[in-house]
Simulated scan of single mutants.
Amino acid sequence: MTARRFLGWPAVRQIASGDWLGRGPAVTSARTESLKPRTTTADRVVQSICPYCAVGCGQRVYVKDEKVVQIEGDPDSPISRGRLCPKGSASEQLVNAPGRQTEVLYRAPRATDWQRLDLDTAVDMIADRFIAARRHDWQQTDEQGHLLRRTMKVASLGGATLDNEENYLIKKLFTAAGAVQVENQARI
């Protein structure tokens, strides 16, 4: 074994440099020194909220060339104080996953293939079906003449990724539409 290669060992470099704990230049390779954090290459930083649960942890989203390059906890957030759970820490993978759906897909009844729809068409289809289901099964009164003003054909299941304000507005919308079954994933 050559002396040069032997001196390149991290343990030998630790002893020779006095870096007894192995946390300094003794264990730093040329490749490690050349690495730069993705956050330093970002064009801008955008504040956001983690999409996974109803806690609402703050995130800093680092963007370069209109593409998300890194997501980290926001130390200015009073809720999470810069910390993220494992799912929140993996948010960048959610955004940049190669299999992520970015278009609305629709499969007609008894069809075997999916077709792409623009967002406006999909929202119109949902609204039309919502109104038709509500109109088809509207119950104004019961058999005794008691006022009901409800439909049992429309229901809502909210997600835990929504915050309190969003869940409140969804509850108001569906109640105003006459829906009785309004539930949230967090209670199930």
Rank of each mutant, 00 (worst) to 15 (best):
E183I: 02
A108Y: 02
T39A: 08
K172D: 04
K171I: 01
Y62E: 00
M125Q: 11
P75N: 14
C53D: 11
W114N: 09
M152W: 06
R110G: 12
V180E: 15
G159K: 02
G58H: 05
A133R: 03
P98T: 05
P78E: 06
D120H: 08
S80D: 01
T141Q: 11
V123M: 12
A11N: 11
L7E: 12
A155I: 03
P78A: 10
R149L: 15
Q14D: 02
S89K: 14
E143L: 03
A11Y: 07
T40C: 08
V95S: 01
Y62A: 01
C85P: 03
R129S: 04
R23H: 12
D124S: 13
C50D: 10
R187P: 04
W9C: 00
D137F: 10
L84N: 05
S29W: 07
D19H: 07
Q70K: 08
L21D: 08
R5C: 02
Y62F: 04
R5G: 05
V46I: 15
G145Y: 12
A179S: 13
L117S: 04
G82N: 13
A133M: 06
Q139M: 03
E92F: 07
T40D: 14
K64R: 09
G82M: 11
A122F: 03
A127R: 12
A179M: 01
L7P: 02
V55M: 10
E72C: 08
E165R: 14
Q144S: 14
I131W: 05
N184Y: 12
K36Q: 15
L162K: 15
D128I: 00
G24R: 04
L84Q: 03
F174A: 01
R129T: 01
E72W: 02
P98C: 04
T151G: 09
A97V: 00
P86G: 11
V55A: 13
G24A: 11
S80Q: 02
A127E: 08
D163S: 15
K87E: 00
L84V: 04
I188T: 11
H136A: 14
V69S: 02
A26I: 11
M152V: 13
G88P: 05
S80V: 02
A127L: 09
T40F: 09
M1P: 04
E143I: 00
G73C: 10
W138Y: 01
R38M: 11
N167E: 09
P10L: 06
L21T: 07
A155K: 03
A11R: 11
R5P: 00
V12R: 07
S77P: 01
E72Q: 11
N164E: 14
T28S: 14
V95I: 09
K172W: 03
G178E: 04
A54N: 14
A42Y: 03
S80Y: 02
Q70S: 10
Y106R: 07
R150L: 06
Q47F: 01
F6P: 03
T121L: 05
H136K: 14
P109D: 06
Y106A: 09
R83Q: 07
K36S: 15
Q93C: 06
E165V: 11
R83D: 02
G145F: 08
Q101P: 00
T40K: 10
A111D: 05
V63T: 01
